[in-house]
Design a protein around this nucleic acid. Structure first.
Lengths: 221, 221, 221, 221
DNA sequence: TATGAATGAGTATTCATTCAT
DNA sequence: TATGAATGAATACTCATTCAT
């Protein structure tokens, strides 16, 4: 495990060491960019280590200096994707004073992120299922990914609380939204949405509205 | 393309021809049985043509007399899976006089079918996305599969109509249920449901109840 | 395990089936010839599946129809080598009426076989040690190989018996000869024999003479 | 070739140069210690440059400052192993006043050394055959290793002389012992000794006894 | 002296598919 | 209808070695 799989904070580093680390980090992220591109264009199956390496201008072997395995590349990709998603939902929620607005904005941001970045959706599906077998990367990355996913939805949970939902109700609301959003995104992604003649964004908005008014009804008694 | 991919109706056949066709059909279905077993036990990744062939007691090459490709086997499997699912939702709906009961029962049957047969879920996800790239088998099988999927949900649509929903509202209700059910099933299948501490069946039932009462509220004005 | 790893005797075969089996056997042996050639010229390390396949005029994948793994090729090679060796020692012993002559002739034949076929020696060393770690092929082939090796030395044991050695003494004599012969062959093979300025064949003959006279002394009391 | 493959004696060195050389020597020996450990625990196959480097707390690249190649590491290891072996046989012989005792003790020490340090045996086999192809490291290391090996057996030769053997007989005795010991060790190492139901140490002792009494018989006329 | 990054060649094995028989 | 043999492309990963820094 000589690869940079996790970004290590070490003792205070000398200047050239710092520079080297910065370069290393940059290369890592260039590789991840290439991987994302391959993922987007070739899909899951085509995203082999070889093709990622080639896209990044590397020999396959060279990737192993930056990531300890193919799965590690995927995991890093997903982690970074979830970071961006979290930033998106947080930013959306932060733009609203009222809890209802924040809830709706965060939910919509979640949906929009994946609707506009289908590669990230693919990636998430892949890693969160591990080839559809219920495992997800052999438990090493799993807890971290779960946490990152949860962080992504945190703004929704907070807004639910501000709307008056208790802990349990808040969790349920978030779970409901997540399941629904995932389902709609799947429909969009596979173009099955056509079968039903629905506008996915409207579906999501409607769900969010109902959720907000549901909470209010309960909260007001 | 000598394979029986679709069951061709030809001009009136002689008796021995009929017998031969019947035998052929039987073999096809035996292969599909084997494939289903492999799918259930090995998952998507393990379900190679080789392993299906072995499970069916055939050489890989032999399968090409019955199906034109590996994907064709999958497609046949999915078609048959959707048939069983349709039977399940229809039967569930048929057990209820009232539209609300029928709606709920059909929805629950849909969910239960996939919850209890994760192999079928895998298969559906795989084929309805074609490796997550939006194609689904190169358009050959697609329309048929779409139709079969729709048939699966038809009882829900009919019940919605009986509940007073107009055509558009009915379609929307079905789409909403489908998206939600798919999302919940994905959560269950990937064990992410744990993250949220929810009972998936309760989630589905709650959704169905809300849908029914929503329609009623609108229908009653 | 669809490969012909062991030569199966089945129910009486039809004529074309027989022909096919014969062809298959021939191809197997051609592959083994190629493997032996590679072994001889490239040594242990160079005898990869790829190079064997290339030498045999095959794709690597094609070999898997004839042998289930690289190790299986090696094992077949060794088995066949031991067969030839056994034939050699048996023939040598059969050429002598007297037990002493048979003992010496069989021992010398053993030595000569390996002295003249260093590739077989390599192979034996490789497989009987499994990369020098004490295993030898994961126990699957091991018992069979042990038996084949023992068969190779059987003429020596029989002759020892005729010379008057009891069971235990006979076994010891065979073990001593085998160890010594292996040691001398190793010296020859690695050219270390030069260090000692000895003629290997004379070393072996001397050992055999001493063994015979030793048995006699004991037997005569 | 900047590496310290052989310990070069140069023109009289300055004090700091001496210090540097001492440090270098120490590092070399630390690396060899690590290599020996890897060899013992992982065997030949596992003893890659990478794993040796890791065990020594170095990058693979760093080893090239101390050794010019992987084979050079092996060679150094073997040289040092032979030194230890020589010390063992010399010490054993030194413990006996009588030639017969010295001969037996040295021989037994030789056997015991390898029986108890299978890693050293592995190494010896590997380097003395160069992948079983008759070369042994491309002649660079060879003469030195031959000498070191001979030194290892020198106590036996001296004792043979004291027993009355002439030069030629002494050499023959040593060669015979060496071959036999190597053979027995190979049997032990590969666990083939089981096939013959013999105790290896007893085999060696018997051989030594016979050798001693053989010399005496001849010497006494 | 040491590192991190990189290479190029190599490993055994699997895959869906084709084709002569 | 079925087989056995074959292909060519692919898979992730390891190796000893080199080189700029």
């Amino acid at each position: 495990m000589t690869a940079n799989d996790s970004l290590r904070r070490r003792a205070p580093a000398s200047a050239p060491a710092k520079r080297r680390q910065a370069v290393s980090l940059l290369k890592r992220s260039l590789i991840l960019d290439a991987a994302r591109a391959v993922f987007e264009s070739e899909g899951l199956e085509g995203a082999s280590l070889r093709s990622i390496a080639k896209a990044a201008g590397y020999t396959p072997a060279a990737l192993y200096f930056h990531f300890s395995s193919k799965e590690a590349v995927y995991a890093a990709l997903l982690a970074e994707s979830l970071d961006r998603l979290k930033a998106a939902t947080e930013a959306a929620a932060a733009g609203h004073d009222d809890a209802a607005g924040a809830f709706r904005a965060a939910g919509l941001a979640f949906f929009t992120f994946y609707a506009e970045n289908p590669g990230d959706l693919d990636l998430g599906f892949y890693l969160f299922r591990g080839g559809m077998k219920p495992q997800g990367l052999g438990r090493d990355f799993d807890p971290g990914l779960n946490g990152a996913l949860a962080a992504t939805l945190a703004p929704l949970g907070r807004a639910a609380g501000q709307l008056g939902a208790d802990e349990a109700a808040g969790e349920r609301l978030v779970a409901e939204f997540f399941a629904y959003a995932v389902g709609v995104l799947l429909l969009v992604h596979t173009r099955r949405i056509r079968m039903f003649g629905q506008d996915p964004r409207a579906m999501i908005e409607r769900h969010l509205d109902l959720a907000v008014s549901g909470v209010r009804r309960v909260a007001l008694g």
